[in-house]
């Protein structure tokens, strides 16, 4: 993955060429600078507890962003992920609470619902060759409506198994959420798959040029359906993490998650035109958003400024990407 797309040049004369050297460097530099800034501004920022909290706060959007990265790498986009996650979360909680189903089965069925949406997205994108934007705009509304038809009630009183990933364990004196660890593990797996498996290579190839990929012997239909389905699996896992984090099944959840996950992907240096980007970048992108939100709040800055800064960061990230690829 990242190794695949990095253009290793020996040009180190300017900031831009450093960014060009590795697509992760720019976002990483931004993250480190933000961390340094906030640790000077507030003594509560650079504590294990707070950093663990940031990780916990990005675990839902961070997990959604894994799927979003896969989709964007194929030059698609997935607007439906937040709604699909909300549906999955409501399904798994209501099955467990209202229908008394075995929690493990309830979780699996919730994730399965998400996966079905992924298959549907993939089938529409490849079968009828509709633009991903349109398809997922449609499934966004379908999932949203189904959630509301299914229940308007927030589901609480969950069995402990559904809350497991919200629990913590201690490293030293720092409490770490199991969910954050799961998210990091998912990133590691995705990183490996993109870098070291034929499927991962195919994702980049299809994103770069679908016709060239087909003529190179790649089954582009299978790759795309696989990508949308795998992405939906991450949405299902994100649903489980959301449920564990908030302790309820919330039919109103995830309404802005699609844009938040796209923000993380873009901040991480992945091109919306497909074929170029890294999963580690996305993790960094998600952390950047989390660090700013947390740091500004600790400083007592109003949350509307977090939105403002996120907007500026997105434009800055894309501009740097554009400039660094201009000759």
């Amino acid at each position: 993955m990242s190794a695949v797309v990095s253009t290793v040049t020996k040009r180190r004369s300017s900031l831009l060429s450093i960014v060009r050297g590795s697509p992760v460097m720019g976002p990483l530099a931004a993250l480190i600078l933000a961390c340094i800034f906030f640790s000077f501004k507030t003594d509560r920022f650079l504590t294990g507890a707070n950093l663990s909290l940031i990780l916990q706060q990005v675990m839902v959007v961070g997990t959604l962003a894994i799927g979003q990265t896969l989709v964007i790498l194929t030059s698609g986009i997935d607007l439906s992920n937040g709604s699909v996650m909300a549906l999955g979360g409501v399904v798994m909680t209501s099955l467990a609470v209202d229908h008394g189903l075995n929690p493990v089965l309830a979780i699996l069925l919730g994730i399965l619902v998400c996966i079905l949406f992924g298959v549907m997205n993939g089938a529409l994108v490849t079968g009828i060759r509709l633009p991903a934007f349109i398809v997922t705009l449609g499934t966004l509304n379908i999932a949203y409506a189904l959630t509301r038809i299914y229940t308007t009630e927030t589901i609480s009183g969950l069995p402990s198994l559904l809350l497991f990933f919200g629990n913590t364990f201690k490293i030293g004196t720092t409490q770490i959420t199991y969910g954050s660890v799961l998210m990091l593990v998912l990133y590691a797996i995705t990183w490996f798959v993109l870098r070291s498996t034929p499927a991962g290579r195919s994702v980049y190839a299809v994103g770069d040029n679908p016709e060239a990929a087909r003529l190179a012997g790649i089954n582009t239909t299978r790759v795309l359906i696989g990508v949308y389905t795998t992405a939906a699996l991450t949405y299902g896992i994100a649903a489980l993490l959301l449920v564990a984090r908030t302790g309820v099944g919330d039919p109103q959840a995830g309404q802005t998650s699609n844009l938040e996950s796209i923000t993380a992907v873009v901040l991480g240096g992945t091109s919306l035109f497909g074929g170029r980007g890294t999963i580690i970048g996305t993790l960094i992108g998600a952390l950047i958003v989390g660090v700013f939100r947390n740091g500004l709040q600790l400083m007592g800055v109003e949350s509307i400024y977090q939105v403002l800064i996120t907007g500026i960061l997105v434009i800055a990230a894309v501009s740097i990407d554009q400039l660094s690829h201009r000759k």
Partner: peptide, 17 residues
């Protein structure tokens, strides 16, 4: 309706003391 956003703010404020 954004519950998670409120949860995040809550956690951050507690962390801020």
């Amino acid at each position: 309706g954004d519950n998670e956003g409120q949860v995040t703010a809550l956690e951050n404020m507690i962390n801020a003391g």
